[in-house]
């Protein structure tokens, strides 16, 4: 790792001040992605601003039918505490491995927006709202390509508000070495329609599969997407799977997610 100063502010405003005053400063959530990135010298921040000591950034509460989860909540905390939204708790409980889940955070995952991360699929399929120190961002306006988001410099995710669907399920085809999703599909059924979000597959990051959403909104059963397919041209291809393989997995996992959501 290159050298950096480590700073642990106790308020969001102190953290934002440091991040805004120094464009080379970077926020640190649980570090489960950022520390490996720093070890490989792929980033050279001047300062790391730990968000772990800031009050009010953790905790899970139910507000008007939605689950509001603090941005610094660990995956383990969400797995244990998001019982009001079982599909989300199950997703959190299968990220990485137990030690990673004890450090990695919801806000950190979303700010990083790895194209194979699990949380982006949950946020997009749930139509969640990303709450920052400055504003609220709808899921559909938040994700912006590979590792990209519409967060401004120095903007910190303080919480995420998840509307709780009538039924939901996340199916993850695990890439066994990294434990990221080779492909992951999150299906959420709301009173006014179904949302389907796909991670691990798209060459522009997490995306909604609108044809499947229309078909499943009409009829919520696995066979409703028979005949639908994803264009492989827009899929990621790497040594773990071809474009065609990933496109195929999207359909299979969507059906499995619908079947599981129907219980």
């Amino acid at each position: 790792m290159y050298e950096f100063d480590f700073i642990r502010p106790e308020t969001i405003s102190d953290a934002v001040t440091v991040l805004q005053d120094d464009e080379d400063a970077q926020a640190l959530g649980g570090g489960q992605t950022l520390i490996p990135v720093l070890k490989q010298r792929l980033a050279q921040p001047s300062k790391l601003v730990s968000l772990a000591q800031i009050n009010g950034m953790t905790g899970i509460k139910s507000v008007d039918g939605a689950l509001v989860i603090g941005g610094a909540s660990t995956h383990a905390a969400v797995a244990m505490g998001a019982g009001g939204y079982p599909a989300l708790a199950a997703l959190a409980g299968h990220i990485g491995d137990p030690a990673v889940r004890n450090r990695g955070t919801l806000g950190g995952s979303l700010a990083n927006n790895d194209p194979a991360a699990c949380y982006p699929a949950a946020v997009l399929a749930s139509g969640a709202t990303v709450v920052t120190n400055a504003r609220e961002i709808a899921a559909d306006a938040y994700f912006d390509g590979l590792f990209g988001t519409t967060l401004e410099d120095g903007e910190i995710i303080t919480a995420v508000r998840f509307p709780v669907p009538e039924a939901a399920n996340y199916q993850k085809f695990v890439q066994p070495a990294s434990r990221f999703a080779l492909v992951g599909v999150y299906v959420a059924k709301f009173a006014d329609g179904v949302r389907v979000a796909v991670t691990g597959a798209g060459d522009d990051g997490v995306f909604r599969w609108s044809e499947a959403e229309e078909a499943l909104t009409k009829e919520f059963r696995p066979d409703a997407i028979m005949g639908l397919s994803i264009n492989p041209m827009n899929m990621i291809e790497d040594l773990h799977g071809t474009r065609a393989y990933r496109a195929h997995l999207v359909g299979v996992l969507t059906k499995r997610a619908v079947a599981a959501a129907l219980g």
Partner: peptide, 20 residues
Amino acid sequence: VVHVDGVAVKSCTMLALEAE
């Protein structure tokens, strides 16, 4: 793997100052 405040963590992926 070590325990920090009672939970298992990978100590190669945590900064010493985070364990203050």
